[in-house]
């Protein structure tokens, strides 16, 4: 327990070994790493994000270039064959990763931010504001949202960004409710009351003491949200109400398979994009499950 004087006057350095213990983040990631499927899911997700970013370098062909070979079976030139207008399926598959990643993460970033702010304000202000916000979320949650999304997309015109906007529009209420619920619980915690009696400002209490403790369910929900948004985009694109050709999306690559001849004679056209959707959604869901377990030590 000896103190060492340093050259600079006024500062005293304590030579005592500071016992810096494991933080919540470290602890959580250690628990996460134990969940094998989640780790595999994370690796796959990161790999697909990598593909999305470096698509132009990884793609063997231009996804829009029309070649002379229509509906060609897989060959050494076109590893997954070509589609009905002669575009390389593998190239389209690789470029379509971008759509899924943008829709998945873009939507979630948008609605989690919005939902969190609304939930925080609603819980913190209370009274009629809270009442009104809760009724609005009731309204959005009672929407048969797939139907409304179809209407909105057809009205606004189906582009990538309308999809992001519309999916976010119908997803924020769940986060807002989640955040409101945890804030109301946390507001009753003594450490928040202590913050008030210590004279800390309301924003400081909200952002330093309440939000960090409410983060776990938000992150888990957001992760599952990425998977849900990717799935919704593919469904809409499949129906022709999402990303429009010639831009490739895994969903719209499956649209053609509705014709029996494509389905039976050219499985390379529709099996790979379908499998890709399954893989990315599955991977992200595993990550979500792993995070949920990691945040909740009871499991």
């Amino acid at each position: 327990m000896s103190t060492v004087k340093t050259a600079t006057p006024g500062t005293v350095v304590y030579a005592v070994r500071e016992e810096r213990s494991e933080g919540a983040f470290r602890q959580m990631s250690r628990r996460f790493m134990k969940h094998k499927l989640a780790v595999v899911g994370l690796v796959i997700t990161l790999f697909l994000i990598f593909i999305a970013i470096f698509a132009p370098w990884l793609s063997p062909h231009n996804p829009y270039a029309v070649t002379a070979e229509f509906s060609a079976a897989p060959s050494s030139v076109h590893l997954l064959g070509t589609d009905q207008v002669g575009r390389d399926v593998l190239a389209r598959l690789i470029y379509a990763t971008r759509v899924s990643v943008i829709v998945g993460f873009g939507t979630v970033a948008l609605y989690v931010t919005f939902g969190t702010v609304v939930g925080l304000l609603s819980a913190y202000i209370g009274g009629w504001v809270d009442m009104l916000v809760m009724r609005i979320t009731d309204m959005f949650m009672a929407f048969p949202y797939m139907m409304v999304i179809l209407v909105v997309v057809s009205v606004l015109g189906p582009t990538l960004w309308t999809l992001v906007l519309v999916l976010a529009l119908f997803s924020w209420p769940a986060i807002a409710r989640l955040v409101r619920g945890s804030v109301l619980t946390l507001k009753q915690m003594d450490y928040v009351k202590a913050g008030v009696s210590l004279g800390l400002s309301t924003p400081r209490i909200v952002f330093r003491h309440i939000l960090p403790n409410a983060l776990a369910p938000i992150i888990v929900n957001a992760t599952f949200g990425v998977a849900a948004a990717i799935m919704a985009e593919s469904g809409l694109s499949f129906l022709g109400m999402g990303v429009q050709p010639p831009t490739a999306s895994w969903g719209n690559m499956l649209t053609d398979a509705q014709s029996i001849s494509v389905m039976t004679d050219q499985p390379w056209l529709w099996l790979p994009p379908g499998i890709m959707i399954l893989v990315i959604v599955l991977a992200i869901n595993f990550v979500g499950d792993g995070l949920r377990d990691a945040f909740d030590p009871k499991q």
Partner: peptide, 26 residues
Amino acid sequence: TGLSFVGTSIPQFFLGLVCIYIFAVN
């Protein structure tokens, strides 16, 4: 538990297409 994740992660239209392909067409 693993399969249940596959069940929730498979898009309905893809599952439908696969079902049609196997049970109806083939």
